[in-house]
Amino acid sequence: MKKFSIQCILFISIMIVIILFSLFLIPNKRLTDNSLYANIDKHHRLDSLPSPKIVFVGGSNLGFGLDSKRVEDSLHIPVVNMGLHAGLGLRFMINEVKCSIRRDDIVVLSPEYDHFFSTNLLDGEKVLVALLFDVNRRDLKYITFSQAIHLIPLTVEYSVSKLMHKEMDVMDEDVNNNFDKNYRRNSFNKYGDEVMHWNYPNQSIHQMAGATIIENVSVSTLELITGFDQFLNARGAKLVIIPPAFMSSAYGGYAKVIDDIDRELKGVKIPFAIKPKSFVFPDSLFFNTVYHLNRQGVTERTDSIIGLLKTKLKNK
């Protein structure tokens, strides 16, 4: 038994060394100049803006769905759009902005609907591991203990995928499709908006799996949002939750899911600041997924958001 135990420990140690070596020392060439690097730029802007400021937090529905300059010019308040990728997880998105929030700031949270159901999307998918280990290791400080536990198997998987040269499935759709230019670091403007795609025609729509959601709205997500609201109140900042932009033809399949989320948010007294249906836009305004708007769509949604924020500021 002693020999067996020693051999097992030795073998496991070798495996751990290989995984750590791959994780920390092998660069992921597939990520070079990837859109994830925009996270660094967004943080620079977030940290450099004076308060009061408006911070948009969410996934790619924001990255692809906002004209921050237009908001800034209309409201005369500096704006940063932190929206990047839903797979980073709502917990990370919230935690990464917390320490930059000051008195009188406004945080506009626009989660994807899927964030309300999937544990992976709450605590982060493999794309978060890629960000943490190959893009911006300083972001590791935003990871909670329970989140770290959740990320361990994904980290091992990610590490091995680098070693075995397997194409990262999380990035495949980003890097390997025909529109990879839209998913590069330099496709974002200084506010954090994805703007490169504004000059492209609409692409075929990549359908999301959300229509098959049969779970209840995640209690953890609601707790995260209420906790964030309390945190902002304590800092003298304000939280505004808005629904993501959503494609009209896909809405039918999601209607029940969206109603559930709407009802649960009202239940915790942090309702959507605008009805979800108000952000359901015609299919012609979408670029390549049910969440990603094209230029015209961005303008329409941004105008709605400006109107909404003007009201909020007036009431304040």
Binding site: F11, I14, M15, V156, E157, V160, L163, M164
Partner: peptide, 11 residues
């Protein structure tokens, strides 16, 4: 060989 198989399994 074992390591290769394990890495393939994890992948």
């Amino acid at each position: 060989i074992y390591i290769f198989l394990i890495l393939s399994i994890i992948q």
